[in-house]
Design a binder for these strands. Sequence first.
DNA 1: GGCTTATGGCTATAGTCAATAGCCAACGTC
DNA 2: GACGTTGGCTATTGACTATAGCCATAAGCC
Lengths: 186, 186
Amino acid sequence: MPRAGLTPERVVREAGDLADEGGLAALTLSAVAGRLGVRQPSLYKHIDSLDGLQRGVSLAAKRDLGEALTRAAVGRSGPDAVRSVAAAYRSWVLDHPGRYAATVRAPDPDDEEDREVSAEVVSVVLAVLAAFDLEGDQAIDAARALRSAIHGFVSLEAAGGFGLPRDVDRSYEFLIDSLVAGLGRA
Amino acid sequence: MPRAGLTPERVVREAGDLADEGGLAALTLSAVAGRLGVRQPSLYKHIDSLDGLQRGVSLAAKRDLGEALTRAAVGRSGPDAVRSVAAAYRSWVLDHPGRYAATVRAPDPDDEEDREVSAEVVSVVLAVLAAFDLEGDQAIDAARALRSAIHGFVSLEAAGGFGLPRDVDRSYEFLIDSLVAGLGRA
DNA sequence: GGCTTATGGCTATAGTCAATAGCCAACGTC
DNA sequence: GACGTTGGCTATTGACTATAGCCATAAGCC
């Protein structure tokens, strides 16, 4: 038996690709193994469980999303930065629907690594709102609001939830612009 | 064998209860059958498939949510109506997390019945925004924005996505108030 | 009441999953 | 080149969806 040269990283990457192509439900160990040219039980040499694999996909996705958001934020501030980050968020999700779905699963509250990468995403959102002169709790509220709006929109969009024939790009701009206009004037 | 007196409605209701108690993942035919005092294959006399059962749970949930929103809207208008509907939406979801999760699954685009009950929810949102003098596409944009914001917030909340120790009720109020303030000023 | 038919339970079973046990060849180390 | 570790493998278990086919109950009809 020649070795396939697997690593946890390769398995996680392939699992992410599979999820993006066929939805999170298509992420089965058999399917991942098939893609890697290996039998299903062999994966257990590299992962703990299906749950662990999904966690791996989720962590990698959050890291990647966080980097994309950071890139979108550099050199910008205020409403401009918010719009840029929001656009980057949505476009990342549309490119990686399955990986994004993996990030949504409720994490174990004392999963330190997960908290860390999640905090990074939140920190970009907080940083981008810094120019709005919100203090203390209001800054947290605003970050939650922006995250909620973006997450809600892209989730509904990904689930095919927008039935009416209205341009989705414009609706997204409207949402972000409205929220930006409303922050601090509530 | 005494008959258990099942109906599709009872099966769907029990399935919804199960989903609310243990999460959508806990919704298995064996578990539903166990609750109804019946063997798993017997359910197939009342439902088509697990997928069909989930669709049933989703439709019933959307109907129930729609009614709750309608009740919250009557006799109110403007920002007051928006806040009332938003509060009703969130509280319904917190009461029925599993049923709500069932509604999120991407429906078949030509499922007429699903389109109908989904449209009812959207129509409440549109009605509640009527006082904001938005015309044509802007009304659709605003409805999408409000739905996205609410859905995003409650989804993140249900998934345990708000780590920081800030009161969640107040963050929700902030979100809705900010959006209301921003509508029309974008 | 008795006959017929449709219906709603049941057992048995196939097929797909995740997961574990235990085997053996390939590789690294000395 | 021998040795231990590692990364594949087959076989198997148990949970799940789903189907096939049985039979008692309930409903309708004379």
